[in-house]
Amino acid sequence: MNPPPKFHIRIRFAEAGKIRFVSHRDVARLFERALRKVRLPVAYSEGFSPRPKLSFGLALSVGHESDAEYLDVELTEQIEIEDLADRLTEALPDGLVVHEVAHREHGSDSLQQAIVSCNWRISLQGAPTAAVEAAVAEALAAEELVIERVRKGKPVIANVRPAILELRVVGSDGSEPSDSPTAGDTLLEAELSTQGTSLRPAELVAALAARSGHEGLVESRVWRTHQWLIVDGVRREPLRPPEPTRRDLHSCPNRTRASQLPSTELQRSLVEN
């Protein structure tokens, strides 16, 4: 007898606001429940404790937000995906928004193995923008950027310079609107490798803090804006980003970044509630 046919869908979603404090594992549980609520024919593993067959991309650290999270789901039958993104968003808690759903060929690499790099947007506090700019320039010019990290319980020295694919200061005190709660922050954009020697945003900030001479330099908000994979030698996203007109500005975290910052976010949640 042939094994039952398998069908796969890939989901792209955003995670923003208070829900950033929920762990990756808990987000997985939220999706399991949402998939049941919309009655998707999810495939289950065999055995004593069957589990739904979901596989996520790279885990997002607690406290980080994202416009580009991915989830692959195995199904037992082919389904219509036309309004699935909206139905899933409806079934998920506030702050999790599904932007795209697509059928996926079986057999392509799992997300975790395929992703080669991620883009990050990082807001920094604790040092003047000029000091951050200098530290960034110094880091980019350096042959080596050595950090100490703990791996498997042991301290390890690593040169993480090759993991910095792109790094620039994109905003500072003057460049943000004056009513923005981020005024005073410095905004960084970085593309960091996830293969070979990888580098996490917090590690990058710690390395910059050491070079800037401002030990108090810390990240206040961190957003993942893109995850990249290489297909036939071309860098692309696992699913194309949402089209700007697809959704109204209100529900798209990509465009309401300023309004999601602390005080306004609270006002918004009060109004919505």
């Binding site: 404090f21 762990s23 406290g63």
Partner: peptide
């Protein structure tokens, strides 16, 4: 909240 264990305890929602 980034400084404490399990910050999701404190966000409601």
């Amino acid at each position: 909240l980034p400084l404490v264990q399990k910050p999701a305890r404190y966000i409601g929602c």
